[in-house]
Each structure stands twice: as C-alpha cells, then as structure tokens.
Design a binder for these strands. Structure first.
Lengths: 275, 275
DNA sequence: CGATCTGTTGAAACAATTCAAATCTGGTGG
DNA sequence: CCACCAGATTTGAATTGTTTCAACAGATCG
C-alpha cells in the first residue's frame, strides 16, 4: 500500500477555443517542435514542413495547469498535438493512488488511431498550462496520404512512444529509487533536447516532487530524499523549476541509461530530401 | 538493487523452418486464436477468416523453450504471429537484471511496423516451445489492403497491446506484491479466455516463479511467499503448470482489476457481417 | 495577511530483498 | 528400477529499502 495521489485535477471546464493568430508568434515556433523531432528520423521537404505547420494552425486550445483534457471512461475524441507545455497520461486506482504512465511534451501526439477504441482507458491531464492543436480525422488523413515522409515520421513517432512505455516498465520493475529517478531525468533531457528545449545543460523542469512520485511509483518523501542524494552526488541541480545536468554521461551511467530505445539516431535514412 | 536474472536464454541456433502441413492439425486450430481474438472486436466474414488463416500457413517456425527469437541490437526482421506457446519481450540491464515487459500468447502479433525502426531495442524469447508464422511485408500489406475489417481488427489489436503496456506500468508503480501478482493473473485469464484457452476456471500456466519474478519486478523468494498468500486466501490453485481461479470476481477485487483496458467488449461494432 | 501548496526532516513501522540451506521435482543414464 | 542431477520451490533469519506519519519551514498567491 502506498500514499494516496494528492492533487486530483479538476476537469477542464472548457479549453477555450481560439485561432492561431490570436496566440502570437510562439505557436508557430512550437509546432516546429514536431518538425524538429521528426527530423531526428527522416529528412523533410519544405512542403512536408509546411503541412506539419498547418495542422498546428487548425483548432488551438489552451488548458490551465492541472486540469483534465479527457477522462477515463469518456468516449474517445479527436487526436491532438501538444504545442507548448507539459501534459500526461495517468490512471487512477480505486483506492485513490494514481500513476502517471506517460508525458506529453511539445511536439508529442496522442495515438494516431485512438478512435478505433470507444472509451478512454486512462485520463489525460495537464501538468503546466498547455496549448494543443486538435486534429480532425479528415485533416490527419489528408496529411498521412499527401505526405508519405510525414506519415512515415509519425509512425516512427508512435513506435518510439511504445518503446518509451516499455522502458518505463523496465524502470519501475528493475531500478531502485536512485537509478529510477536518474533514468527518468536522462530520458527527459534527451527528449527535450530533440525538440530544442535544452540549452547548454539546462532545461525547464516544471514537475513537483509529488508529481514525480506519481511517475516513479514511490512516495513523495522518498523522492525528496533521493533527489537530495542525486544533488549530493553532483549529478543534478534542480531549483526554481530548472534542471541542470552538468555531467550527463555520469547521470546516464548511474541509471544504466541506454538511449537506443528513443531511436533518435538518423543514420541509414538518408535520401537527400530537402528541396 | 535486486537479484540477477537467472536463466539467460541461449540464442535460437535456428528455428527450424517447415511448412504448415508438417505440423499436423493443431496449427490450423492455433491460427484461429487470432480469429477468435479479433472477433471480440469486430465481426469477420468467412473471407476475412480464410485470409487470416492463410497467413499462418506461410512460413512456420518452431522454437524450443527458453531461446531467443531475436535479440536486442539486431536489425529488425519480419513480423510474426504466435501460433502456439508462450513467448515474451524482455530487456536486460547492464547489471544482469532482466525485466519481461510483455507476453506473446497464441494469436499475438508483434508490432505491425517494427521495420520502420532499424534495431531491436529489446529481445524476444520463448518461455515454452513456440511455433510462429513469419510474415513478409508483402503478405501483410496484401492482407491489410484486401481485407479492411481485418486491417481494422489488427490496428485494434495493436492499441490493446499498448494499453496493456500502460497497465503494466500502473501495476508495477502502484500495486504491492499481492495485488500485483493477482492483477497479472486476472489479465492472463482474460486474455487466454478471449482465445479460448480457459476451460471452466482452469488454464495452462507454464511460468516458473523465477520468470514471474522477472515480470513482476520482485525477487523469486517474494513471489513464492506471495503466491502462498494467494493460495491461502483461496483465490488461486496453482500446481503442475495449471492455474485454477475458482472465484475470478474475488481475484479481480483483490487486485483492483478493471478489464476495460483490454477493450474486449464488442457492443457498438455491429454491422452484421458473417456471410 | 492568512491560506495553501511544496519541500524538508526525523523516527517508527512495514515491505521486500538477500543469503543460505533444505526439500521437492522431473528427467537421464546406468 | 534406481541413483543421480539440475532446476524449481520452499523456509528462516538478518538486512535493506521504502513508506507512513507528523511536524515544520519556505514559497506563492490572492
């Protein structure tokens, strides 16, 4: 038995719908998180990039921090793409404990074909304020059919997400608290770096220790003590919602982190596309 | 830190290739595990069923128990379909510990488009003697394009597998040993039942306690003691590789098992197909 | 300014691992 | 058929890792 999940997010009253232009330049920048990520896997022509940019234009919604985008048991809805902010998938147990099972970072998409399932078997909630683009099935089909390289890239993206889910299983099953947190931090640094959100060795890190506890399957108290150990070992600096990893190779070694599962290495996919 | 994984399977010298007829009638029966499973989601015409049956005919391979079908780091190969026996995905850590991250039961397929990734980020190994059909990309494409209902069913299958992976994350993160094992047993009973491998309240259960430990992320000793608790509570009878669950509802309650994530409920998908 | 989170600390209780040894099992060869 | 072996299961005792509970300090926010 473990502690109860602490803050149960309230349901998003209504993520205010609004069009892209109202949001100012940052959305254009944000959509490119997806472009940047896909470029880790495949080259993209300007046409490909424009098409990706365009889907971030359609129906943009904003959600405050700590609200549900969709809840377990609801009918599945449209796909969406995170433009900015952090969100997560999570599941709540009858006894109140909750487990965060995945993060959505900028450039992340929900499953391409959730609509095949009728009901959500988990909830999706924000961790920070989030903007996301909602994609109709039609818009998505158009993209997948008209831009084969993009379609390939998005399927790659799905496979990587599945690989991440497997790795979380390994992480929870086989690593102790210290290795476990170190491993998660490595993964986040790699993922944030692939979308250009790491500068030098620093990135924003908005998670509270309580949320971290819900990810790591441990108590918040133990998260606290473990973070102190990591700080004591000089592996991380974590203050004011900013994470610094001064020696990533050491953090990787400490957590037996092997980035292969992120499939971020591009060699072998060249076909000289960039028109 | 935990105990080392015990038996590291040797690599399959060569899964002997042979054609279906050589295997006798049981393969025909086995392919229908997939048909049976898909019927939980969508009706299938006789043509659909024949097409599915045919893919189990092409290249059938047999593997002894405890051998690797493919190892982490190898180039990805063809898709395959399990015809009989139990296999698993697993990952080995540098320190020797291993985590089983998924089971392959009869009727289970590996990811439809692993080929997009270049290298395996995990290994696949058998737990019992296994027969599987290897599918070329061409054969698969033909199936997906020629039989839309089958294509839909297979995409449903993938989504369910992803949902299972999420549920394993929850299981490892939030449930204690007793609930955790109980939950896994519930899942296996549901999955085996969906392919017709549960009779009354009994099914074959070939896992050793050591393998169970590699699934549950706990020591074999603790698995042993926890199984005894479950037996003591009258929730399971486990002997001679046979599992009996006399009161499934009680086992479900004990593990907070909610089968929704298996998406086995068919209502809402009727279209009266069966010609 | 109080109210409410988040982070931190200590001590006691509990869950799970480790190590070691004993028993049981199925399969093998003599 | 029995003896033997390797692997799987079971048991006990000591140790470690993690949780729980409770209290307090620091932020943050109306």
């Amino acid at each position: 038995m473990r502690r109860l999940a602490s803050h149960l997010p309230r349901l998003a009253g209504a993520g205010l719908s609004c069009r892209n232009r109202e949001l100012g330049g940052d959305v254009a920048m944000m959509t490119s998180a997806l472009v940047r990520k896909l470029l880790n896997f495949t080259p993209l022509s300007q046409g490909d990039r424009d098409a990706l940019q365009k889907i971030g234009d359609e129906r943009v919604r904003r959600f405050p921090a700590h609200t549900d985008v969709i809840q377990e048991g609801e009918a599945t809805r449209n796909m969406f793409l995170v433009l900015s902010g952090w969100a997560c998938r999570y599941k709540q147990l009858e006894n109140g404990r909750r487990q965060i099972v995945a993060f959505f970072l900028p450039g992340d998409l929900c499953d391409l074909d959730v609509l095949i399932l009728r009901k959500m078997d988990h909830s999706i909630g924000t961790l920070t304020p989030v903007t996301m683009a909602e994609l109709s099935q039609a818009a998505l089909d158009e993209l997948l059919l008209g831009y084969p390289r993009v379609a390939l890239g998005l399927r790659w993206e799905s496979l990587v997400n599945i690989a991440i889910q497997r790795e979380w299983t390994v992480n929870l099953g086989q690593r102790n608290a210290y290795e476990r947190i170190a491993h998660l931090l490595c993964e986040l640094v790699f993922r944030l770096r692939s979308i250009g959100l790491v500068h030098e060795d620093r990135c924003e890190f908005p998670l509270t220790q309580i949320e971290l506890a819900d990810v790591m399957g441990m108590s918040a108290v133990h998260v606290n003590r473990t973070l102190q150990e990591l700080r004591g070992a000089g592996l991380i600096i974590l203050r004011d919602r900013m994470l610094t990893v001064p020696r990533l190779p050491d953090l990787m070694a400490a957590s037996m982190f092997n980035p292969a599962y992120l499939h971020l290495d591009r060699e072998g996919h060249e076909r000289g596309v960039s028109e």
